[in-house]
């Protein structure tokens, strides 16, 4: 009796476990690629990485892929793993701007530029949002007040120091002549808490990706004063910073890296693979569904983009004394 119950319990327990190492496709064919995700299931990198893998598998560009999550320290732990698997010819990692900052704030010895750049996939503009009852109606009003009393204006964002929502207001402050150290930035635990603070008018302004706020913007519960990318966002009635006369373009991006020291052929194979994936109608459909902006860029070009990003992040964090 007891043994049967134990067995039943084990069966019950192993059901969710079986779902954990999610792998898809059939078991045949030796070269099986691995995609490492630097945060938890359901997070931004997870959604991007899994969508890219699903597209490659569904269109049969590759056979089977193993997707696994390595969490810890905003991606630093995953990055360490990538570096430690130097020369591994079967490993890819989804990452983005947040990981760049985390490498600095966690004071790791690993350098982003050591990894092999494969491709940048998507980008997202950041937005400057204010509560519906905010006195500010344009980015100019806001900046004018901000300059008068930099510490008096509360800024909230969904990322911890080093993350995109934190880096953006710092760069914005510098672009309009405010010292980054004077910015009164409060981190919120993800988009949900930030949204609550905005809806409850607890903040003067919020800097965040706008994807999570689409409905609230449409209903006028949140006002967007400016967006940080090169182009306006469809459905959001706000100018870009450049249109508003501020010389700053800031984008949050996500892409794919391979470990350092992989052979040139492997790098080329990966680049070709992602280029082919990018060309499929299935990927276009994913982009449309998730409202992601295509920002495809590969190899050398992506490499120099990474170098540039790395420098920008380092400069900002140095100014703040975080490096």
């Amino acid at each position: 009796m007891t043994r049967r119950q134990l067995l039943a319990m084990l069966a019950l327990v192993s059901a969710p476990l079986a779902g954990c190492g999610v792998t898809r496709g059939d078991d045949s064919g030796p070269p099986r690629l691995r995609m490492m995700i630097p945060n938890r299931p359901g997070g931004g990198y997870d959604l991007t990485g899994r969508a890219a893998v699903a597209t490659m598998e569904d269109t049969e560009l590759t056979k089977r892929f193993e997707v696994f999550n390595v969490t810890g320290a905003s991606g630093t732990v995953a990055m360490a793993r990538l570096m430690n698997e130097k020369g591994a010819e079967d490993l890819l990692m989804t990452m983005g701007l947040g990981v760049v900052g985390a490498l600095y704030t966690n004071k790791t010895k690993y350098k982003l530029t050591d990894a092999t750049p494969i491709a940048r996939l998507i980008e997202e503009s950041e937005g400057v949002a204010v509560p519906a009852d905010s006195p500010y109606t344009s980015i100019d009003d806001l900046i004018a007040d901000w300059k008068k009393d930099p510490g008096g204006l509360t800024v909230g964002g969904g990322s911890s120091p080093g993350g995109p929502d934190h880096l953006f207001p710092m760069e914005l402050a510098r672009a309009v002549g405010i010292k980054a150290t004077e910015v009164n930035y409060t981190p919120y635990d993800g988009g949900g808490d930030l949204l609550a603070a905005l809806l409850g008018s607890k903040l003067d302004m919020a800097t965040s990706g706008l994807g999570e706020f689409t409905e609230q913007i449409k209903e006028g519960k949140i006002k967007v004063l400016a967006v940080s990318g090169e182009k306006k966002i469809t459905g959001v009635d706000a100018p870009t910073l450049q249109e508003a006369g501020i010389d700053l373009v800031f984008i949050n991006w996500r892409g794919v890296l391979a470990p350092p020291g992989v052979s040139a052929e492997t790098a080329t194979t990966f680049i070709t693979l992602l280029t082919e994936m990018h060309a499929t109608p299935e990927w276009k459909e994913v982009l449309r569904q998730k409202d992601w902006t295509d920002a495809f860029m590969t190899g050398e070009e992506f490499g120099s983009f990474l170098k540039d990003q790395d420098n920008r992040v380092a400069t900002t964090l140095k100014e703040l004394g975080l490096v």
């Binding site: 319990m9 019950l12 327990v13 059901a15 969710p16 476990l17 779902g19 954990c20 999610v22 938890r40 299931p41 359901g42 997870d46 899994r50 699903a54």
Partner: peptide, 24 residues
């Protein structure tokens, strides 16, 4: 409910992770 009970029983795997893994 069966899946939920199972992941609730097992420490560590919560409903959030289960739903995330079932998103596809």
């Amino acid at each position: 409910v069966i899946l939920g009970t199972a992941v609730g029983v097992l420490p560590g795997i919560g409903p959030a992770m289960t739903v995330a893994l079932l998103l596809p």
